[in-house]
Design a protein around this nucleic acid. Sequence first.
RNA 1: GGACCCGUGGUGUAGCGGCCCAACAUGCCAGCCUGUCACGCUGGAGAUCGCCGGUUCGAAUCCGGUCGGGUCCGCCA
Length: 611
Amino acid sequence: MNPMQTHFRDLTCGDARREHVGRRLSLAGWVHRRRDLGQLIFLDLRDRYGITQVVVDAQEAPHAHAAAATVRNEFVVRVEGMLAARLPGTENPKLATGEVELRAAEVTILSTARTPAFPINEPDQEADEAVRLRFRYLDLRREPMLRRILARSRLVEAIRAVHHDHGFVEIETPMLIKSTPEGARDFIVPSRLQPGSVYALPQSPQQLKQLLMVSGLDRYFQIARCFRDEDLRGDSQPEFTQLDLEMSFVAEEDVMAFVEAMVIEVSRAVVPERPIQHAPFPRFTHREALDRFGSDKPDLRYGMELHDLGEQARGSGFRVFEETLAGGGRVVGLAAPGMATASRSTVDELTELAKRFGAKGLVSIAIEGSGAVRSPIAKIVGDDRAEAMAVAAGASPGDLVLIVADRDVLAQEVLGRLRVELGARLGLADQEVLAYCWVHRFPMYQWDVENGRWDATHNPFSAPIPEHVELLTTLSGDPSRPSPEDPAGRALAQQYDLALNGWELGGGSVRIHQRDLLERSFSMMGHTLEGMRQKFGALLDAFEYGAPPHGGIALGIDRWAMILTYQTNIREVMAFPKTQSGSDLMLESPSPAEPGQWAELGLRFVGAPKG
RNA sequence: GGACCCGUGGUGUAGCGGCCCAACAUGCCAGCCUGUCACGCUGGAGAUCGCCGGUUCGAAUCCGGUCGGGUCCGCCA
């Protein structure tokens, strides 16, 4: 029997085939479309499995015909009848069920429907997103949303299968945890039982998964909901889902090897038709990624790499270049293919963009098809030198070289962002390809100029690479007086990010599990162990009871699903997302608290409510 | 916190100082139609142009504010 058979139906609307012809059976679903020819009415019956054509003949079934005449789009109906082969020449090859049709004997209206706010049966017609969100349950009926939600389900299903196959234990961690002062802003939940105290919603289960390693669970994973109270973007939401995993007795290579194999297996399971550009995944050190792509999440689907033009810029006589180099900065350029003919306004636009990204300006050198050089700086540096710079930037005739001179890293980052913008404008990326890559060896610490101290680049528990452990144990001077010259500032971490098509999928690290090293690391950031105990007390305590070497990673499921389904907006792969201002337009949340709710929590609202 | 874009019948668009008490498509309603599958044909209803204020003889159109949505910068791993 068909496993989808229920009280109301024998088959789904996607099941009926020639083999079922001659059977009397029932289907149930939404009326996708009605074609009323008078004595003959066709109903396209839809559910998430497909569409089956129902024929209602006034002669054959007068009662069913009368019912079908009152039916409208999106009514939910049950049709009982004989499944018949379609008349020769009337088959519909566009439908999987197109060779058959259900000849209605009975049509039962299970539910009527108002006219929907936007057409369900014409998904190509884009509706306003606010309307889609308000009527998300209708939007989810539409084929594109349905397809993406199903793809996401397959993604999570494949993730679970691979992890279970590899001995991972799936463990749920609490949603009401302790506020930690690091990272993003916490969502806070006031405690009723302990007035004045709050829980925080987890930004990630980071501490908990490390504690699970101390517990000896050895391999943990979770499809974990995470919360961050920051401003929203197309690729972010206040609540989002991570694949969170942690492994014991591992070195960096172990985690990366497992994750890479898992990612490949999952990708092939979810989108078998999409080629993975490189496997094994390319690996870049953080430094190399910045120097070559100006990004720690490079898009490898196209070249247009950055090139250091310091050698050519030195002694060029162009003051911006000279001063930048003298100040220890960088002059970097890239060659935009075929853009030599770009108009003045396009170049101006790119310059504005570069400024918005933090650069002081943008220098362009066009190599015309003839090989002639055209550049605002040509008369300062000379055609030969301009051409030499263009060549060094990898330009061919017809290309436009864009050059940014600024302090180290900023110059690359600005140009890296221009690279992404140009890649999009020029359509350089193959949309089918999945270009995964690793970026690793991040610096352990970043010098916080404003506060005059070192800060963890990622997780403060990330371990240095083995060769750099010594750097942490040989602090230059007084740890209470940090300096950007501290040798420990050069330490690289066993930290790895996974990027896909220019998006950061996620990142992780091997953690420090030794108390003395942890103490060193914390003191680098100007914290005492006591001070850190306030923030990470349980984990530090746990480390005194036998902690295995461990490491892990967290990958953004929403972002992954988004890329796998060719989207650029995370909302398109979430069933019930929020708007940029954090509202749920369907549920109309957030909503004002009842006065009694404040009181119960021992709180009083003092600010003026919005509006 | 900041910059920019959008808001016109149910939906998608057009109109961007007077030809507009607003056009087109689709949807909706009614009628006709026995092989349609974006069915077809005929007829009809439906928008004070997000809201408030201003400029003007005259505002969907220009200006200011406001609300909602989006994109980006900052923020955020």
